[in-house]
């Protein structure tokens, strides 16, 4: 393990993970809104927001899939040292981290069981840009409608068609995060 992998975690984990979770909760509860996550310094190419999400949500009980373009020894060491999450292939993952190209096709990920739809993957998709423009979102958490710069619409429409099964998605860019739960209806505009 390289020494750099030991750096970049939370300095005061209880408070920082609490603040990070509140932003992650608001993001998941209000699809199409963008929130800020800070406090971690993960190794490149992992963004601050994606690193904070991994630190806040993953531990030794959550298998994590790292996409090929993010799968460097330093990233693996950093995740292992700070969370202990087992690194696994896509079908076994509870969390997945990578670019959209890394994580497609998305049908590889767990969508839950009909009687336990919560046993599904959460994708953390690293985005080059993240704005409140693009496909139109409606559904729980959205008063009228919202817009979010999704990487594509077809995969999310197919995911919504599985409801209550499906994966849930965080989109990260720099220190900003937005979310798209499986319950959101996506329409191209």
């Amino acid at each position: 393990m390289t020494p750099e992998a030991l750096l970049g975690g939370f300095a005061t984990a209880p408070q920082q993970s609490a603040r990070a979770f509140r932003a992650a909760l608001e993001a998941m509860a209000r699809p199409g809104t963008i929130w800020t996550l800070d406090g971690a310094a993960p190794p490149a190419p992992v963004s601050i927001a994606a690193g904070v999400l991994v630190l806040t949500l993953c531990d030794g009980t959550t298998p994590l899939h790292v996409g090929p373009s993010f799968d460097t020894p330093l990233v693996r060491d950093w995740i292992t040292f700070h969370t202990g999450a087992p690194l696994v292939a896509a079908p076994d993952a509870q969390f997945a981290l990578g670019s959209w190209a890394d994580l497609t096709p998305t049908h590889r990920f767990a969508v839950g069981l009909p009687d336990y739809p919560d046993r599904s993957a959460t994708l953390i998709v690293e985005m080059p840009t993240l704005t409140t423009t693009g496909p139109r979102l409606t559904g729980p958490g959205i008063a009228t409608h919202a817009h979010l710069s999704l990487p594509e619409t077809a995969a999310f429409q197919a995911n919504r068609a599985l409801f209550p099964l499906g994966f849930d998605t965080y989109l990260t860019c720099g220190n900003r995060v937005a979310a798209l739960p499986r319950s959101t209806k996506v329409e191209a505009v």
Partner: peptide, 10 residues
């Protein structure tokens, strides 16, 4: 927190 997020999503 993971349970809460899945609850919000479903």
């Amino acid at each position: 927190r993971r349970a809460i997020l899945k609850g919000v999503a479903i």
